[in-house]
Amino acid sequence: MSSLEAAAGYKPSRTLPIWAEVKRQASRRRTQLALGFMVVLPLIVLGAFEFGNTGGGDDDGDGGGAFSSIADLATSGGLNFALFCLAVSAGFLLVVVVALFFGDTVASEASWGSLRYLLAIPVPRARLLGVKLTVAGLYSLLALFTLVGTGLLIGTLRYGWGPLGSSIAAELPPAEGLLRLLGIVAYLAATLLVVAGLAFLLSVLTDAALGAVGGAVMLCILSNILNEIEALGDLRKLLPTYYNDAWRGLLSTPIQTDELAQGTISAIVYATIFWGLAFYRFTRKDITS
């Protein structure tokens, strides 16, 4: 008995099962609030549109409307409503939510002091990060799909199921439009990898959850600000948020894909670097929390 390498039933690869981590996070108020807000936001947007419409009559129905902006088209159908919800969230809300899921996950365990007990189980450090990363990713995807799903549902209930109007090209039939919308969701998910990578790295480097989440959001804002400075020229292409708007290419006919690919490359490379650094650091550092 005494020469056993580990306690009975212990296997490194079975420690901290994904499902256990999902439950750890699910019971947290911030997870519930973040996901809840993804449901509430489309409702607020709907309310805002309804409020704005009570005064005047319905001014839809002019033929040239197909070329107006995403906001003007938001009430033209469920697809457009969901698209609008995505478009208004992409720049900041989704960044914050993803930074929250990825930035909070390790740092909060460190600040509670529970991280050292997980490591003493022992959950191998790489496995701990891997599971944390996977679960944060799952929650981020869940948030994204909750937002789109809710937008699609209440948009369709209120404005009906119709073609996806685009500010750039002609209307897309509903089936095609839904595919495009899913494509946009996929691309947004890819660009959010940058935030995910950054927040996760900071989460590993600091014991303060707020520092990790806030730091990631702030660096994203910094990148956005630099992106506005045209004097930087081609240098801006190196900014992690440079390609964030490329999803609009999915609204044009035919689809403009090269920037989608460039944006995805940029996001994947950044995420790989950040995650790589996170793993490198975490598997070597002294846990002092």
């Binding site: 005494s2 490194p12 947290r28 108020r29 003493a120 022992p122 191998p124």
Partner: peptide
């Protein structure tokens, strides 16, 4: 520990129970 060299994350740690530097619990549970 029981003849096994102890390094960070060594499986032999599973035969050790610990309280180090105070409790660490998930406050919401």
């Amino acid at each position: 520990v029981f003849g096994h060299r102890l390094v960070p994350g060594a499986p032999i740690l599973s035969r050790v129970g610990a309280l180090v530097e105070g409790p660490g619990f998930l406050p919401h549970l």
